[in-house]
Structure formats: structure tokens, C-alpha cells
């Protein structure tokens, strides 16, 4: 583990100790109930995925303020560093997990002028959202991503710090895959907004 990663792990541990906790089972069951309700309301798994992502986005746009205020971290120099911070500090602070970060081989994308890496994969060994969940066959076939809210949270949070990303679940143990993997891809770095009718 590099020194940077170690340092982030220490920050994450420290912030976790100072965080107010809620009962994990209550949290897990509440999330499960939320997903079930969405499925009942929309009766379409693709739409449920979309709604979960949207909810996550709205959570993320506020959660980032909480995160920055608590940790006092500065801007990351590279997207790889962002990945480390998300895994070691953010997930640790809010969910007490620390998903493994890996970088897929860069795809041939000559149009992108962003310095690599522009994407990373978070692999969840444990997932507090899905602790007691089991997907019925219908949901598996319908393509439900049970923890899709996580992707939305990351997307919302990063957008507030001028990083526009796409997130996408690649696999989920609930669907019978070997691991749960979430891909985060940097689309572009947003420019700071300028005031209107600047005279």
C-alpha cells in the first residue's frame, strides 16, 4: 500500500470514530423496503434502477458538503487519487466499508484528452445495503441493480466538485455473480461557472 493510500486509510478510520452511528440492521431493512416499494410503484426494473440512481444523485449532491466539512480534504491531483479517497475515506465514513479499487486497462479512446486513468472499478467485499437481500428470479431477469443508489451518490458528489462521471454496476453477487463491481468513468472536468452578463 502506498503512503497516500495509508494516509487516507488513517483519515477514514479517524472520521469513522467521530461519526454518529445508526443501527445497521435498521438501515439495511429500510433500504430494502425502499427498493421493494419502488418496484411496486413502477413495476419496471429499468425504471427502478433509474429512480435509485436519481435518489442517489440527490443524496450525493448534499453528502459531499458533509464529507468535505468533516474531513477537510483538499482537491485531488489525479482521478486515481479520487478513487482512493472514495474508497478509503468516503465509504469508510458513511458505510464503514472500504471497497477495493482497481483500474481497468485503458480503452482506446483518442478523443479523450483527460490524463489516465479515467476510470476505476470499486469491488465490494461486503455491502451493507444488501446484507439480507435475496433477489427473486423475476428481478434478476428484469435486470435490477439492487444497490444502484451507490452509483448515483458517487455521481452526484463528484459533480459538485466539478468531475462529471458515469457510473454503472458491472456485476452483483445478488445476481449470482462472483463479486459486486461498480465502474466509475470520468467524462469530463467541468469548468467553473462565470457570472452572467458580466460587465
Amino acid at each position: 500500500m502506498s503512503t497516500g493510500a495509508k494516509q487516507y486509510k488513517a483519515i477514514g478510520d479517524d472520521v469513522w470514530k467521530r461519526t454518529d452511528k445508526v443501527n445497521a440492521e435498521l438501515f439495511t431493512l429500510t433500504y430494502g423496503a425502499l427498493v421493494v416499494q419502488l418496484i411496486k410503484d413502477y413495476e419496471d426494473y429499468a425504471e427502478v434502477n433509474k429512480q435509485l440512481d436519481k435518489m442517489g444523485y440527490n443524496i450525493g449532491t448534499r453528502l459531499i458538503e458533509d464529507f468535505l466539512a468533516r474531513t477537510g480534504l483538499g482537491r485531488c491531483a489525479t482521478f486515481a487519487e479520487t478513487a482512493e479517497v472514495i474508497s478509503k475515506v468516503a465509504f469508510r465514513t458513511f458505510l464503514n466499508i472500504s471497497p477495493a479499487v482497481s483500474f481497468p486497462p485503458p480503452t482506446q479512446n483518442p478523443t479523450s484528452n483527460l490524463p489516465p486513468p479515467t476510470e476505476f472499478i470499486l469491488t465490494f467485499d461486503e455491502n451493507p445495503l444488501a446484507e439480507f437481500a435475496e433477489l427473486p428470479r423475476d428481478a434478476k431477469e428484469g435486470g435490477l441493480w439492487f444497490s444502484n443508489v451507490l452509483g448515483g451518490v458517487i455521481r452526484g458528489a463528484l459533480e459538485m466538485i466539478q468531475l462529471q462521471v458515469e457510473t454503472e454496476f458491472l456485476s452483483d453477487v445478488l445476481r449470482g455473480d462472483e463479486s459486486t463491481e461498480l465502474l466509475v468513468r470520468l467524462v469530463r472536468v467541468l469548468d467553473e461557472e462565470q457570472p452572467e452578463n458580466d460587465e
Partner: peptide, 9 residues
């Protein structure tokens, strides 16, 4: 005095 956050506040 100015204080800026990373989120642009």
C-alpha cells in the same frame, strides 16, 4: 475575508 469550498460555495 474569503473562504471557498471545493463545491464552489
Amino acid at each position: 475575508h474569503l473562504y471557498e469550498t471545493l463545491t464552489g460555495y
